[in-house]
């Protein structure tokens, strides 16, 4: 299915640029052309369809799905809805307040808040395009499990007193969110693709370029020596390194793919990518408007531990 991009890269690298097959430079250029063409094609088409699906799940409606459900079912549903509900950091607070207001348990709300940024379509597209469907599926499933598990733990800890006091006092109105026509949905999907791509394209290209250099120039098994499965610190270090890279999630994945080809084990790779997407400083700062410090620390700790467990499990299994 993706052969067309290989042929395109062959044509540009060998014919158009006249590069000799086999050299470091050729390898890098070929990799860059093939991957950037493939990734942008996938981003445009998949984000468009995801946005169409999303237009049916505004958070005001999502909230209704989660009311009065069996607790376990609610956790699973919250994690799944997190994937399809539009989310950006600036809407994290209203979402949180809206959920809590509707009587949705705190833990369930967290399952949603964790899965929403972590299991998002941009990450999945990049994983699918660069790593194949197998790794993308593993990421999707383990991401959902982390969201369900971490949300449940937060629920068991009865952290309600650590939600900012004013949150409980807000009285929420019932908005009638106007239903969209198909024309509006298509318009929405188009503007969504434009919005996302205009934000991430430099990171994606930069990431693929760095990845291409790593592919062409870094020796095989280079990382195996330092960050291989025998190094027990590799997973926690990967998680700590992942936190400050949030805004560059789109740029990080192509680099990580190159690193994995040079011997970074699967578990460490997964843990790193999950830390990049799930844990971020800007999100913590924003959530501190609705959560007291104790709850933010608990949230970060539980998510980090879950991600580290994922890392160790996959390093051990593979």
């Amino acid at each position: 299915m993706f052969r067309v991009f290989t042929i395109l890269a062959d044509m540009i690298t060998y014919r158009l640029l006249g590069l000799e097959p086999g050299s470091h430079l050729t390898e890098s250029v070929h990799f860059f052309v093939e991957d950037s063409a493939k990734i942008f094609f996938l981003l445009v088409t998949i984000i468009f369809f995801v946005a169409l699906v999303r237009s049916f799940f505004p958070p005001e409606r999502t909230r209704k799905f989660l009311e009065n459900k069996n607790l376990f079912v609610a956790h699973v549903l919250a994690a799944l809805l997190g994937v399809v509900t539009p989310f950006c950091t600036c809407s994290a607070c209203p979402l949180f307040i809206g959920f809590v207001e509707a009587g949705i348990p705190l833990g369930v709300t967290f399952s949603f808040l964790i899965s929403s940024p972590m299991v998002n379509e941009v990450a999945l597209v990049l994983l699918f395009g660069l790593f194949g469907w197998y790794i993308a599926a593993i990421y999707l499933i383990t991401g959902l499990l982390v969201a369900i598990f971490a949300g449940m733990v937060i629920g068991w800890l009865n952290m309600e007193p650590y939600v900012a006091d004013y949150v409980w006092e807000i009285r929420m109105g019932q908005a009638e969110i106007p239903d969209m026509t198909w024309q509006e949905r298509l318009e929405y999907a188009k503007s969504y693709v434009k919005d996302i791509l205009s934000k991430i394209w430099p990171y994606v290209l930069g990431g693929i370029a760095i990845g291409a250099l790593v592919h062409g120039y870094v020796p095989q098994d280079f990382l195996l020596r330092y960050a291989g499965p025998d190094n027990p610190f590799a997973v926690p270090v990967a998680v700590i390194l992942g936190v400050p890279l949030y805004s560059n999630a789109a740029g990080v994945i192509p680099i990580v793919q190159a690193l994995m080809a040079k011997g970074l084990p699967l578990g460490t790779t997964l843990a790193f990518m999950m830390a990049v997407t799930a844990l971020s400083f800007p999100e913590m700062v924003i959530l501190s408007q609705v959560l007291k410090r104790e709850l933010i620390i608990t949230f970060v700790a539980i998510v980090s531990i879950s991600i580290i467990i994922v890392g160790y499990v996959f390093n051990f299994l593979v």
């Binding site: 505004p58 958070p59 539009p86 600036c90 809407s91 209203p94 979402l95 809206g98 109105g173 106007p178």
Partner: peptide, 30 residues
């Protein structure tokens, strides 16, 4: 102000409200 945004029942800002009625939420309208 969060309390006022929520009072309109909006969970996905930005939103446009005309004369007290929510017209659209969740994206940058043209």
């Amino acid at each position: 102000e969060m309390g006022k945004i929520m009072a309109y029942g909006v969970m996905s800002p930005p939103a446009v409200v005309v004369d007290g009625k929510v017209k659209g939420t969740g994206r940058l309208f043209s």
